[in-house]
C-alpha cells in the first residue's frame, strides 16, 4: 500500500493523507509495553522538520494509522531522522512495536502545535510528566538543555506506576546527575530496593519550590494528572497562560478534516496537542465533552 501511495502522490503538492515511506533503523525496547523506533525517510520522502511536542501519524500497512508523539532530539534531525516512542495498546500500536530494523512504515506529519519554549526564555522551567507523557516532553527537555544558559532553574518531575513502567531510566539518571537540573522520579508502586519517592506526582509537585511569576510549566500525562497538577500550579500563582498541557483526543487524520479530535472549540490536531491552560481549563471541567 505504501508503495502504491508513493506512486500516486502528486509531485506538485503531496496529498495530506498519503504517508511517506520511512525505514526503521533502530528498534529499542523501553519497557514491557513501550518501544522507541528510529526512522529514516526513503529517498525524496523526507517530511518537514519537527518541533518539540508535535506528533506524526504512523501507519502499519493494512492495519491502520495512529497518532504518535515525537520523542527524539529536535537538534538531531540529520538525514530526516525521526524518533518515536510507542506504547502498545491496540492493533496498530502493537504492529508498530513489532517493526524490527529494516522494516518499512508510513509516516505523515509532523502535525500540531508543540511546546512554546521562546516565551519561557530567561525564566524557570518546570516539566511534569506522567507515564508515557514523558515521551513528547523529551524533545522539549533536550531543546532546553541544549540552550541551558538561556533558562533559570530547570526542574523535571516524572511519575510512573512502577520501575518496570518507567520510561528512559538511563536518560533520567543522566539528567539527574547534571548540577543544573533537578530531577525527581516518583513511583506509584515501588519495587523492593527503590530508594526514591513513592506516591502520586502531586506530592513532589507540592514540595517543589517555585517562583510563580518566572515559571513556565509543561505538563503531559493522564488527563486527570494534568488537571490536578495544572490546578495546583495555578493556585500557587503560575499564570494559566504559562501552564502548557499536551492533550489527547482521537486524532484520526491530523489535518483537521475528520472531526474526531474536537474538544469544545478546538480541533486538537490543529490548535493542540499542546494548549495553554487558560484555553482548556474550563473545558476539562465538563464531563464527556
Amino acid at each position: 500500500m505504501i508503495q502504491a501511495m508513493r506512486e500516486t502522490a502528486r509531485p506538485a503538492r503531496a496529498e495530506a493523507m498519503v504517508p511517506a515511506a520511512y525505514t526503521v533503523v533502530d528498534h529499542r525496547r523501553e519497557t514491557h509495553d513501550t518501544v522507541t523506533l528510529t526512522l529514516l525517510p526513503g529517498r525524496g520522502t523526507a517530511l518537514p522538520r519537527f518541533r518539540p511536542g508535535q506528533f506524526t501519524m504512523l501507519s502499519a500497512e493494512g492495519i491502520g494509522e495512529i497518532p504518535v508523539s515525537i520523542s527524539g532530539d529536535p537538534d538531531d534531525q540529520h538525514d530526516g531522522r525521526l524518533v518515536q516512542t510507542i506504547r502498545e495498546v491496540g492493533a496498530v500500536s502493537a504492529a508498530l512495536c513489532r517493526s524490527e530494523a529494516g522494516s518499512e512504515i508510513g509516516v505523515r506529519g509532523p502535525y500540531g502545535h508543540g511546546w512554546r519554549l521562546a516565551s519561557a526564555l530567561d525564566g524557570d522551567l518546570l516539566v511534569v510528566a506522567g507515564g508515557i507523557g514523558l515521551a513528547p516532553l523529551r524533545p522539549l527537555i533536550r531543546s532546553a538543555l541544549g540552550r541551558r544558559e538561556h533558562f533559570g532553574d530547570v526542574t523535571l518531575l516524572a511519575g510512573a506506576r512502577s520501575y518496570a513502567d518507567l520510561l528512559y531510566p538511563l536518560q533520567l539518571d543522566a539528567w539527574a546527575r547534571r548540577r543544573d537540573t533537578a530531577v525527581t522520579v516518583t513511583l506509584d508502586r515501588p519495587d523492593p530496593g527503590w530508594t526514591g519517592r513513592v506516591g502520586l506526582i502531586t506530592g513532589p509537585l507540592a514540595e517543589t519550590a517555585i517562583v510563580p511569576e518566572r515559571t513556565t510549566a509543561y505538563l503531559c500525562g493522564p488527563e486527570i494528572m494534568i488537571k490536578v497538577c495544572a490546578d495546583a500550579l495555578a493556585a500557587r500563582g503560575v499564570p494559566p497562560e504559562r501552564i502548557q498541557v499536551s492533550l489527547e483526543r482521537n486524532m484520526k487524520c491530523g489535518v483537521g478534516w475528520c472531526g474526531h479530535c474536537q474538544l469544545g472549540p478546538h480541533l486538537l490536531c490543529r490548535s493542540g496537542p499542546v494548549c495553554r491552560w487558560d484555553a482548556v481549563a474550563d473545558l476539562l471541567d465538563i464531563e464527556e465533552l
Binding site: 500500500m1 493523507m17 493494512g62 491502520g64 494509522e65 487524520c253 478534516w257 475528520c258 474526531h260
Partner: peptide
C-alpha cells in the same frame, strides 16, 4: 456534516492493502 474515519483493508493473502475514508458520525 463532514466527519470521516479511515480504514485499512487487506485481501485474504495480506499482499494488497487499501486505505478507505468513509463518513463517520459523532
Amino acid at each position: 456534516c463532514f466527519c470521516t474515519t479511515v480504514e485499512d483493508a487487506t485481501d485474504l493473502e495480506g499482499d494488497n492493502a487499501e486505505r478507505w475514508q468513509r463518513w463517520d458520525s459523532c
